[in-house]
Structure formats: C-alpha cells, structure tokens
Simulated assay, not measured.
Amino acid sequence: MKGRVGDLDTFLRTDPRDVGCEEVIEMLHVYADLHAADPEDARARYPGIDVHLRSCGPCLTDFEGLLELISG
C-alpha cells in the first residue's frame, strides 16, 4: 500500500504546466537543438517541456542522449 500512496503524492504534486511524455517526445528534437544553442531560450519558449524533463526520468534520459549527439 505504501507504493500507491507515494504514487498518489507524486501525481498530486505534478506541475500543471507539465505537457506530458507524448508532447515531449514529439518536440524533443526541436527542444534539444534549441537547448544546445541557448538553454535559457529553450526553457523560456517551451516551459512545459522544461517542467516535464525535471520530473520524468525516461524523457530526461532521451533528452540527455540527444544533447550528447548534438554536442558530439
């Protein structure tokens, strides 16, 4: 039961600006290119993606992989 309470707490603390995995996956390449050039501009233009990446480990891993490829 403890895991379910933790999951509920996480859900209730979700930032309403979070756009969710589906939108992040669609826009991640755009966000990563922009972030590589200017991280502050990327955060300002796509705040929902920035918020999501701070709370979703799998999407953050994909983002970091893309940044690594771009920065090569």
Rank of each mutant, 00 (worst) to 15 (best):
P39R: 09
L67W: 06
E26V: 12
I49A: 03
P47E: 08
V19E: 06
I49S: 04
H35G: 03
E23P: 09
L34G: 05
M27D: 13
V5N: 08
F63T: 11
D18L: 07
A42R: 08
V24M: 06
H52D: 06
L53E: 08
I25H: 13
E26N: 13
S55H: 11
D62N: 12
E23Q: 15
I25L: 13
Y31T: 11
A37G: 02
A44H: 08
R45N: 08
L34M: 15
F63E: 10
G48Q: 00
H35E: 08
D41I: 05
L28K: 14
I49L: 04
H52E: 05
A37R: 14
I49C: 00
D18Y: 01
P58E: 06
K2Y: 04
T10S: 13
A42S: 11
Y31M: 12
F63A: 09
D33W: 02
L67V: 07
F63Y: 12
D15L: 06
E64S: 13
E23M: 14
L34F: 01
C56D: 12
R43I: 04
T14C: 09
V24D: 08
D18F: 05
L53D: 09
R17N: 09
V24Q: 08
H35C: 11
P39G: 12
D18H: 05
P39H: 02
D9E: 15
V51L: 07
D41N: 03
S71H: 12
L28T: 09
H52S: 03
L53A: 11
A42G: 09
D38Y: 00
V19K: 02
L67A: 03
A37S: 10
M27I: 06
P39N: 05
